[in-house]
Design a protein around this nucleic acid. Structure first.
Length: 508
RNA sequence: CGGAGAGUAGCUCAGCCCGGUAGAGCACUGCCUUCGGGAGGCAGGGGCCGGAGGUUCGAAUCCUCUCUCUCCGACCA
């Protein structure tokens, strides 16, 4: 019995059921899977490898801006955590709490917690308080400032409704924490790191983002200002891809981080924090995935070129493998952005067609097949993942190798352009009143995928009580974009005069 | 955390209503034939039916509790 091959590698397709497509593609691309532990995920080699690429790139950007890596404990005494009231308010409902320090067997032979801790520990949801504790000891004078540190770590937030890669009980991230002498210095840091994130997302992940500030209701608990980069997923929903906070004196006061100023006074430092997480993997999937799987932007792909030897019973196996090795070696001498091209030879003992689909689903940017015919002709058979519909092409071997850096850069740009065009097609600017607004977010499918519709950029009066109107639509204010037009207009929610432009959208 | 649905082979599921100790397709293993393409044939391996109790001579099937996942809602730096 022959089963008909599906038209698409991922089923259902995005149009059929976007949510299910998302879960399927995450699995099929071998990026991550759910674990047996409630709300927790396993990052697999292809997903973790992508995260490692992100880490390398971001870490360099952090170092270039003067930061150094530290590592702080995962356990935070409740007494530290509760020092900042807003912080407690924001996070208390999703804490994992450690109350015991050993296990013993009970009468039934079952292991039960024993040895209750005098003071329970929480597992960090973020580290402002425990880092603040150290900063208060390390900082004495203005000469100790600025203190610019970063930590790569796991954090835990007990989410009620987990969603793989986007919202899990444990995830990996980096959190930058800095302390400054003045508000201006801290604000510069906050905006500088947001810009680092923007550049990283757009240039490396090929995800176009909108930079802006969060409204009060969406701020980080304890922050004075929260800034963000917001990306649009293929269902039109917004995803916060990174945040940067100016924390003012909140944690300085909570943790008593003081310094003697140039004039001799004892002042509180101004702190900031900023972070991105493995959620970016989810953003990548929902930005670049299609119905055949993932498309990894070359700058972040663990392997940019995958070589598949085409081996038949009668093939000169050694000769083909040697040719593959030689091609790999030649490609390793080529570069993208000054970095050696990342190449993998897939020598698994399975059918070559299966390997090919495997890498299509994973989203390797370029798949090269080498068989006896190619060696004879001096050519290579190339599949460009972002142009699957073009099929295979046959390049002169030397041409392919010589152009590899250029081609990877071309693919990178093509992915960004596609994502930017998609966002542009769903970024609406001409909605001026509530009737049009409500109609936009209430309309049925218009040929796109389910859910979010898109972004509405419109005038808003700034009165947060007006936002209750949005509840029934499931829409929120994603950010106040930096590039305000400053023009006078009418608030789309209240009809009152307004100069503020905001992005309205459904969000993840 | 509230409402709904679902957990049976690695995956997708049938069997459950009408209890009699497990099946299909795909995947996997071996052999053969194929193969520039998500192959075909034959032969195999693999599950104590999410877990714990209970009812019964007997439970995947009935009852109770519990865990996990999915969807909707609340919540969500």
């Amino acid at each position: 019995m022959s089963t008909k091959a599906p038209k698409t590698a991922i089923s259902p397709t995005r149009a059929e059921n976007y949510n299910e497509w998302y879960q399927k593609i995450v699995r099929a691309s071998d990026i991550a899977e759910l674990s047996g532990v409630r709300g927790c995920q396993i990052l697999k080699a292809w997903g973790y490898g992508t995260w490692e690429q992100m880490q390398h790139d971001l870490d360099r950007r952090f170092k270039d801006t003067g930061h150094e890596n530290y590592y702080f404990p995962m356990y935070i005494p409740i007494s530290y955590f509760q020092r900042e009231a807003d912080h407690v308010e924001g996070f208390a409902k999703e804490m994992a709490v450690v109350t015991h320090h050993r296990l013993t067997k009970n009468a039934d032979g079952k292991l039960v917690p024993d040895g209750e801790l005098e003071e329970p520990l929480i597992i960090r949801p973020t580290s402002e308080t425990i880092i603040g504790e150290s900063m208060s000891k390390w900082i004495q004078s203005y000469r100790d400032l600025p203190l610019l540190l970063n930590q790569w770590a796991n954090v835990s937030r007990w989410e009620m409704r987990p969603r793989i890669l986007l919202r899990t009980a444990e995830f990996l991230w980096q959190e930058g924490h800095t302390a400054h002498e003045t508000k201006d210095d801290a604000m510069r840091e906050t905006t500088q790191m947001l810009e680092v994130y923007r550049a990283f997302c757009e240039d490396v992940l090929a995800i176009p983002v909108i930079t802006g500030e969060k409204i009060a209701a969406e701020r980080f608990p304890g922050a004075v200002n929260t800034y963000c980069i917001e990306a649009m997923m293929q269902d039109g929903r917004a995803l916060q891809a990174g945040t940067s906070h100016y924390l003012g004196h909140s944690f300085a006061k909570a943790c008593t981080i003081q310094f003697q100023s140039r004039t001799g006074s004892l002042d509180y430092v101004h702190t900031t924090s900023w972070g991105v997480s493995t959620r970016l993997l989810g953003a990548l999937v929902m930005t670049h995935g299609d119905d055949n799987g993932m498309k990894m932007p070359p700058r972040i792909a663990p392997y940019q070129v995958v070589i598949i030897p085409i081996l038949r019973e009668d093939s000169p196996k050694e000769e083909i493998m040697t040719a593959c090795e030689k091609l790999k070696a030649d490609l390793l001498n080529e570069t993208l952005d000054g970095q050696p091209v990342r190449v993998k030879i897939d020598s698994r003992d399975i059918q070559s067609s299966e390997k090919r689909w495997d890498w299509i689903k994973k989203g390797a940017p370029l798949i090269v097949e080498i068989g006896a015919k190619d060696i004879a002709s001096g050519k290579v058979c190339v599949t460009r993942r972002d142009k699957l519909e073009d099929g295979k092409r046959f390049d002169e071997r030397g041409t392919f190798v010589g152009n590899i850096g250029l081609e990877l850069a071309t693919i990178q740009q093509a992915l960004f352009d596609t994502a930017a065009a998609f966002r542009a097609s769903r970024l609406v600017r001409d909605i001026k009143d509530w009737a049009a607004f409500e109609a936009y977010f209430s309309k049925d499918e218009d040929g796109g995928f389910t859910g979010g519709q898109g972004f509405v950029r419109a005038k808003w009066c700034g009165d947060e009580t007006s936002l209750t109107k949005l509840d029934v639509l499931g829409v929120t204010v994603r950010c106040i974009p930096f590039d305000q037009d400053g023009c006078e207009g009418v608030c789309v929610l209240t009809g009152r005069p307004a100069t503020l432009e905001v992005i309205f959208a459904r969000a993840y």
